[in-house]
Write a protein that binds this DNA or RNA. Sequence first.
DNA 1: TTCCCGCATGTGAACGCTCACAGTCGCAGC
DNA 2: GCTGCGACTGTGAGCGTTCACATGCGGGAA
Lengths: 349, 349
Amino acid sequence: MSGPLARPRRPRGRGQRPAVMTDVAKLAGVSHQTVSRVLHDSPHVRRGTRERVLAAIRQLDYRPNPVAQALVTGRSRSLGVVSFDTTLYGPASTLLGIEEAAHDRGYAVSIASLRSLNRASVVGAVQRLRDQGVDGVVVIAPQRAAVDALLHLPPEVPVVAVEAGPDDSVPVVAVDQIAGAAAATRHLLELGHRNVWHIAGPEDWLEAEQRIEGWRSALRAAGAAEPRLFRGDWSARSGYDVGEHLLAEAGVTAVFVANDQMALGLLRRLHEAGRETPGEISVVGFDDIPEAAYFTPPLTTVRQDFAEVGRSCLHLLLAQIDSRVRSWTRVVVAPELVVRGSTTAARAR
Amino acid sequence: MSGPLARPRRPRGRGQRPAVMTDVAKLAGVSHQTVSRVLHDSPHVRRGTRERVLAAIRQLDYRPNPVAQALVTGRSRSLGVVSFDTTLYGPASTLLGIEEAAHDRGYAVSIASLRSLNRASVVGAVQRLRDQGVDGVVVIAPQRAAVDALLHLPPEVPVVAVEAGPDDSVPVVAVDQIAGAAAATRHLLELGHRNVWHIAGPEDWLEAEQRIEGWRSALRAAGAAEPRLFRGDWSARSGYDVGEHLLAEAGVTAVFVANDQMALGLLRRLHEAGRETPGEISVVGFDDIPEAAYFTPPLTTVRQDFAEVGRSCLHLLLAQIDSRVRSWTRVVVAPELVVRGSTTAARAR
DNA sequence: TTCCCGCATGTGAACGCTCACAGTCGCAGC
DNA sequence: GCTGCGACTGTGAGCGTTCACATGCGGGAA
């Protein structure tokens, strides 16, 4: 006998259901639309009305349902970040920078970590975030595979890349790796080292390639020869392992290592081999992780302002979301050489 | 003259709007409900119908709108994680563990970083995630303030805490800090050290207090005296600074440091002071960060399985969401002592 | 006075889905 | 032949907002 509206839709107990807009409207004696207007600071609401609505909102502890808002506006006010390994200092800091900036602008941040790194996984992660309803995506994945994936993304999804190469069709925020690497190399050359060795990162990482390029250009500019190139995988272990081969080379007095962890491994190996740092061999790292100042010896390195990178990403992304067009902007953040105890003047011979 | 339905609601160009359920229904010649049934693997769909629907879905590249689903079901299939500093190895790894497990269960993960740590900021962050529509929240914030905040949370929000104290009313996942600290201390005692000093973390961190407790209990069990307690702030810098005071003490041969970064700072200070490690002083850390094995000397430390912690959090949280009741579970993850080169037997005197 | 206009407010549809329920059809049972 | 029941499918309401438009009301210009 009871009509279709007789029973409330949500009878499940435990306190009353949260207030919705019509509840507020009823209590304030206005229409739901007026409540909406108050919420959006519309000028067309009389002062007294506004106050009554505000009072009702407080009394009922009303909070707008973001899901309903998203459904009707088509905007979720949430962003996605895809990243390869948020356990690393760089990505983690960038993520933090993005999150804080997003929060300030009223955006939520969802994350998607990649377990493996290839075109399919990157495209999949972006798609997954998209299917989740985010308004835009930041891709922190400075590998060739990731960059490649970006080109294969549907053009309607707003996206910003971190640290991608120069030849992209999406907006990019990057630290000037070449300048940083050149500064590190120049620093060693200026200390009187005739040669500067380099331990690079993996081949498919753009940052690794760019640091090589910076190293090469500084070498060339100084008229120095280019020694054999070594490669690690960013880990301290690989720095340690490569150290062994480096020790086999003759005349090594200065090494520019592509990140701080590998530099740590190298320091360890040099120490074990009884080679003094910086006395016999000067070492420069890259990143300036918080621990770098406490290595033995304290590491001269190149600082990257990851937080700034994160903030820039966010701004670029929001601009893209608001304007609905994908631009070709490229924001470059300058790195900074931080000189500590792991480098010293070459011994006179 | 044109009726209210004459103009489509979304005329904005750039490709056609994504397909919705009724588009699929129309193409397949069925009702939207049947499409929904196919999507949810309802058994009451004839084979042929199902196939036609599936074909239409593929043809239109249809993807269900998660926002609409969330609106009607009241579930967003998204989780929130609040954390203090995701730049640190521990929280970052836990976050990763949560994210991967969540992904596997079809949940999205939103993050909220805390800039400052107090009851209001934690409550605010949880509220913010809630207002965003998450189904549940994991709080990674092992400080007294955070735990305190959890008690002041509305009881209807599903929540799990990481590393909180033992006296809580919310489910907790924690590494057994006491056991870990005791193992570290015991290790040093068993090497013949008469005394084990301790550099603890900040007072308001539960982990710091629990590691102190484990250290004390091991000391007591061995009948060893309890030396003066030192405190740092988890940073390498503080370990370095505290090292100075430690060097002023007489008879220090073994130190258990509450985390690896402080241990690094201490190693650095000892090195500068010309005190040999482990020859004169043995050092044990806590966490086993990836770099620990490459410190000088390689650090003996206590490994925490953060990924496992993250996974457990997720399971507890989903159980809570599904059952709609907040339980009192406490999952304890066992730590593991990793012996490396920074500890050695006490010199006979 | 009359008309118009702008402010303040209300009304109803739409967003894209799920839920509850109401059919429809074919076939076995009496 | 009629009833009943299962398998399958369709209908319409409703989730909580915003958007487009309609309406009521008061005041200044003509």
